[in-house]
Design a binder for these strands. Structure first.
Length: 190
DNA sequence: CCCTGATTCGC
DNA sequence: GCGAATCAGG
């Protein structure tokens, strides 16, 4: 596939919407996310904030790091200096000693309710909660959504358990309601 | 492990 | 110009 005008536009559009490269690639079809990213860069819109002010961040990108990529392919990492890992994690640990974080209350931070969250986000949540793995506490892993559902005081309680979204503790949908960008408060024009 | 974008460089 | 391979990170 080649980058036709339309494809490029869809790319721009989606990228502008904050879609991930892989999503865009999937949408376009016939290309990988690498292709998309490469194109994005060539188009010069790698920075999603091109419209607004010139961010005061020049992005030091150039690390002056002479990538010894002799022949790229088998460049082979110089040497894993992993052995030099003698730090031993110097953890200052300013925390004296914590016994229990939550006394007796419910360890449920969010719980959608009075909070006004994007209707769409909520819809998304109820949508995925139907597909939730309904994991128990013990079944949670590093990459399972830890969003609690139901009342912990009853049997009807479980964790989402869907694949988390890169780094976050929750899946895509739950991340959506958990971390609201910031716009709940809308200054109404009086 | 999953995913993200960023970069390089042979093509 | 293109994008796979790779890097770097969450």
């Amino acid at each position: 596939m080649s980058w036709t005008d339309e494809r490029v536009e869809l790319l721009k559009k989606m990228w502008g919407e904050g879609q991930s490269a892989s999503q865009i690639a999937k949408e376009l079809g016939g290309v990988t996310r690498n292709a998309v990213i490469g194109k994005v860069h060539r188009l010069g819109l790698s920075n999603r904030a091109s419209g607004g002010k010139a961010e005061a961040k020049a992005k030091p990108a150039a690390k002056a790091d002479p990538k010894p990529r002799a022949s790229r392919a088998k460049a082979a990492k110089p040497a894993q200096e992993s052995a030099a890992k003698t730090e031993a994690e110097a953890k200052p640990a300013p925390m004296p000693a914590r016994k229990q974080i939550i006394p007796a209350g419910q360890p449920l931070p969010p719980q959608p309710s009075a909070n006004e969250i994007s209707p769409e986000a909520l819809a998304k949540v109820s949508e995925i909660e139907k597909k939730a793995k309904k994991l128990s506490l013990m079944e949670l892993t590093e990459r399972t959504c830890k969003w609690p559902v139901g009342d912990p005081a009853t049997e009807d309680f479980w964790f989402c358990g869907l694949p988390v979204k890169a780094g976050k503790p929750y899946c895509e949908a739950h991340v959506g309601v958990a971390f609201q960008p910031m716009s709940s408060r809308r200054d109404r024009k009086r």
